[in-house]
């Protein structure tokens, strides 16, 4: 896996009139994992979007080496398409990669339109898209939401394997995410 690192310095995030957090710094090297914990609305998703470069921070800088893959509440799959075709679109964009659909238990769903899939099944499909992307830095925003316990264990295993191969995993979640070793940042400590 290509060399990767992500570092954030003195980040602050403002939504509307409110500063959600400030003075947040973090740094991860290849193979490291980090959980961002905190209550609803504290700014976990905003932090993830800032780290992904999708939202400018109110203050501070993000320095990122390597491609970023993101899972959030939106799977970015065409809802009318069968799952196989919807994933094939991303495969054409991302190039040939490991096919994780069987491992994620999606094989029998490939000809089912995405709109008929359950929340957990869509989440698993998002993991298939993420693995196909082959990005060294994974940002998992509430990635366990909607997954049953078996699938949640599988997601944790996938994240552990990703780190073992030299990838970086940042997990934003209010629930436990079993991954060792993993650092933990309580976002509440940086709240304004």
């Amino acid at each position: 896996m290509q060399d990767c690192s992500i570092a954030a310095t003195d980040l602050a995030c403002r939504r509307g009139d409110r500063v959600l957090f400030h003075s947040l710094s973090l740094e991860l090297q290849a193979g490291e994992a980090l959980q961002i914990a905190g209550a609803n609305g504290i700014g976990k998703s905003s932090l993830m979007r800032i780290l992904a470069g999708l939202m400018p921070p109110y203050a501070g800088t993000v320095d990122c080496q390597g491609a970023v893959g993101l899972i959030d509440e939106r799977p970015a799959l065409d809802t009318h398409q069968p799952l196989g075709a919807a994933l094939a679109f991303w495969q054409r964009i991302d190039g040939p990669a490991e096919d994780a659909t069987a491992r994620l238990g999606l094989s029998h769903l490939l000809d089912v339109p995405v709109r008929y899939l359950s929340t957990g099944q869509k989440k698993r499909a998002a993991f298939a898209r993420l693995i196909g992307q082959g990005a060294p830095i994974w940002l998992l925003d509430e990635a366990l939401n909607g997954l049953d316990s078996d699938a949640a264990r599988l997601a944790e295993t996938l994240a552990a394997e990703h780190c073992a191969q030299g990838g970086i995993c940042i997990v934003a979640s209010h629930q436990a995410f079993a991954l060792q070793p993993m650092r933990r940042v309580e976002l509440a400590e940086f709240a304004a």
Partner: peptide, 14 residues
């Protein structure tokens, strides 16, 4: 925008 496609394209540098 709603389905998150633009985010994923941006992450891929398109």
């Amino acid at each position: 925008l709603e389905l998150g496609f633009f985010d994923q394209w941006a992450l891929r540098g398109i």
